[in-house]
Design a protein around this nucleic acid. Structure first.
Lengths: 205, 205
DNA sequence: TCATAAACTGACTGGTTGCTCAGTCAGTTT
DNA sequence: AAACTGACTGAGCAACCAGTCAGTTTATGA
C-alpha cells in the first residue's frame, strides 16, 4: 500500500510539478494538457483521472504554491531571531527577494493575471490568494509592531505601512523577473530607503 | 478621398480600440480574432487586411498605449508647475495613481505577462516597453534631482531611489486592479512614507 | 488463486483557433 | 468606357484544444 501510494504520488506529483512550471512560465491558456502529458510521460487521460479538469489542476498547483510559500516563511522565522523590529524588517526583505529567486516559479505564478481573474468567480482560488497575501502582509506588519515596541521603528500605521513596503518589495521582485532592472543592484538602496521610512528619527547630515 | 481615408481610419481605429480592451482585460491568447471582428462589426478578413497577424495587432496596440501614456505625462508636467522637488514627487505619485484609474486598460496591459515575454524575442516590443519605463523612471528621477537642488530632498542615489519609488507606486496600482486592497485608503500613508524616505531630516517626535 | 478496485491508456469527439484567398464592389484614373 | 485600385468579405482550412470513455494493466486483500 505504501508502495502504491508512493507510485500514485510520484505520478500525481510529477504532473503537479510539471503543471507548476508550465502555468508559471507559459500561463494558463498557453499550457496544453497534451503537452503536459507528453512531458511527464503519461497518457492524456491520466491527468484527467487525477484532476477532473484543467481548472482543478490549476487550483491544486496554487494550493501547493500557497503551502510551500507559507512553509518557507514559517521555517525562516521559526529559526531566525532578530535583535529588534528594524532588523526583522531587513530580514523579511532579504528573505522575500531571496525566495523570489529560488522559488521563481511560485512567484511567477503570483505575478500572472490568471489567478486573480479566477479568484473573482472561484472562492477556493480567492481563498488561496488571500491566505498567501495575509501571511506575507502579517509578517511585514509583525516586524513593524515589534520595532515600535523596542523603539527601532517610529510612529507609523503598522498595517498600511506594511502593505506599502510589501508592494514595494513585490514590485521590485516582479520587475526583476521581467529583466527590466536588477533587484540586486538596488538591494542596499532598498534597505536604506526602508530604514529612512521607518526610523524614529534620521541622523543629522 | 478625405472621406475614404476617414472611413478606413475609423475601421482601423475601431479594431485597435477593441483590441486594446480585449488584450488588456482578457489577455493575448484568450482574445480571439473572430470575437474581435464580431464586436467591431467587421468581417474576419478585414482585421488581417489592416494588421498582418495577431502579434502585429498587439504591437500596434502597445505602440498606441506607449504614445498615449507618454503624451499624458508630457501634458501634465508641461502645464503643472511645482514649488519644489518634493512637491513634484507628490504630484508624480498622484498623477500615476490617477492615470492608472482613468486609463485602466493601458496599465492593465502593462501589468500582464505577455508584453514582457514577447519583448524577449521581439525588439520592437522591447523598444516600446523600454520607452514607457524610461519615460516614467525619468520623471521620478527628475523630481528627486530637482528636490536635491532646492533642498527639499536629501542625499540619496537619484536613479536607484526613483526606481524604488516607481516600483512601489506601480505595485500599489497593480494590487488595486486585482482588488487585493485599495490604493485610495493608502494614499496619505504613501505620501507620508515617501516624504520620510526623501526628506533631508525628519522633524523630531 | 481470484475477484475487485484502482491506475492508466490512447483513440476519439466536437469545437475553436489564427489565418488564407478567391472574389465583390465603390470609387478613381486613364 | 475601360482599366485599375484598395478596402472589404466570408467560406474554408489545417492545427490544435479540453475532455471522454471503453477497455487494458496493475495492485490489493481475502
Amino acid at each position: 500500500m505504501q508502495g502504491e501510494i508512493k507510485k500514485d504520488m510520484s505520478r500525481k506529483k510529477a504532473i503537479l510539478r510539471a503543471a507548476t512550471a508550465f502555468f508559471s512560465q507559459k500561463g494558463f491558456s498557453e499550457t496544453s494538457m497534451s503537452e503536459l502529458s507528453k512531458i511527464t510521460g503519461v497518457a492524456g487521460g491520466t491527468i484527467f483521472y487525477h484532476f477532473k479538469n484543467k481548472e482543478e489542476l490549476f487550483l491544486a498547483v496554487l494550493e501547493n504554491v500557497k503551502a510551500e510559500i507559507i512553509e518557507e516563511f514559517g521555517r525562516y522565522f521559526g529559526e531566525k531571531k532578530f535583535e529588534n523590529g528594524m532588523e526583522m524588517m531587513e530580514g523579511v526583505i532579504f528573505f522575500y527577494l531571496y525566495l523570489a529567486g529560488t522559488m521563481e516559479d511560485h512567484f511567477l505564478l503570483l505575478h500572472r493575471h490568471y489567478p486573480y481573474k479566477l479568484a473573482e468567480v472561484n472562492p477556493v482560488c480567492r481563498g488561496h490568494l488571500e491566505a498567501i497575501y495575509n501571511c506575507l502582509a502579517d509578517i511585514f506588519e509583525q516586524a513593524i509592531l515589534t520595532g515600535q515596541k523596542d523603539g527601532s521603528v517610529g510612529d507609523v500605521n503598522p498595517r498600511k505601512t506594511a502593505l506599502i513596503i510589501f508592494s514595494m518589495i513585490d514590485g521590485i521582485a516582479r520587475f526583476k523577473t521581467y529583466n527590466l532592472y536588477d533587484a540586486g543592484a538596488l538591494y542596499n538602496e532598498i534597505l536604506a530607503a526602508c530604514r529612512r521610512m521607518l526610523c524614529r528619527d534620521t541622523p543629522a547630515a
